[in-house]
Amino acid sequence: MTSTLISSPHVPRVNRVDRVMLQVLLALVPGVLAMTWFFGWGVLVNVTLAVGFAVIAEALVLLLRRRPVLPALGDLSAVVTAVLFAISVPPTLPWWMTLLGMLFAIVLVKQLYGGLGYNPFNPAMAAYVFLLVSYPVAMTSWLAPELLSGIDLSFGDSLAMILHQVLPAGVDWDAVTAATPLDEMRTQLDEQLTIAEIRDQSALWGVFGGRGWEWVNAAFLLGGAYLLWRRTITWHIPVSMLAGLLSLATLFWLIDPQTHPFPAFHLFSGAAILGAFFIATDPVTATTTRRGQLIYGACIGATVFVIRTWGGYPDAVAFAVLLMNIAAPTIDYYTQPRVFGHGRERAR
């Protein structure tokens, strides 16, 4: 009987990029399924299209840069970018906008800066903002949850909508689209209605968030819990981001509950949960020190609340994440932990 001698360090598992990305993709499954349940096949069509475009774009750029193609594709980072992008955009988005978004994300935001690990901005969110600024109408016309519109769009209908922008006979856009809960809340508040009135007159509200949206967000929360359990992400960024958002929301809700929605609404109506667990935690663009992650997350949460309440757009996760992406290196610089054995006078 022979025994092999292995020297230290005894690391049980190699932390490879593709494993991390695979965990993220697995954790996204419940959320994507919930979105498909509430918003129809368009979600899955968008995910498929985006993944295809992203992989092709990445392969082409890698060929142009004369870099090995297969290892870079195999790390699945382009796939994660594509899926995050596809679930952020409306399920009716014309296919060529998805193509534009993926080209922007992969070519300009990721590869021109040097590829995975070098991009200062989150590619999926940069592409989302690029489209939101460029095509505001297409990017804000969301499908109504199916249980609200009562119209069941088949797979073929969704495909026709995305490829040719045509709806099945007898259905018009107003019947299938609806304002998102955040959008609705914002417009109604602008018209001087109180929260109680808004909740009474609109069918968009569910138990603790927007109808449909609350369960989508609960599914993303489940996926986030899975990521925490697998230790793919640490608790610092999600918890501090949600805490930043919730503390401001609670404060203003306590001051005036008739003009500021209750805190759970902020969590379960937009992209807050998705952003906290899947987007803000992107290891490339987030801060790396523990203290820095707490600051980074809290600032994202606070920015989300500020933009939602006083800004020009209904939701703000993408803007908040991009803004803090720029600040991440500075935060890291000022929160470097003290090296053991060295004095306090560092980083002057």
Partner: peptide, 15 residues
Amino acid sequence: FQGALIAILPPGAFI
């Protein structure tokens, strides 16, 4: 033709 509005806005100048 549906242009990308961002090209006319300031970010488009930098890009």
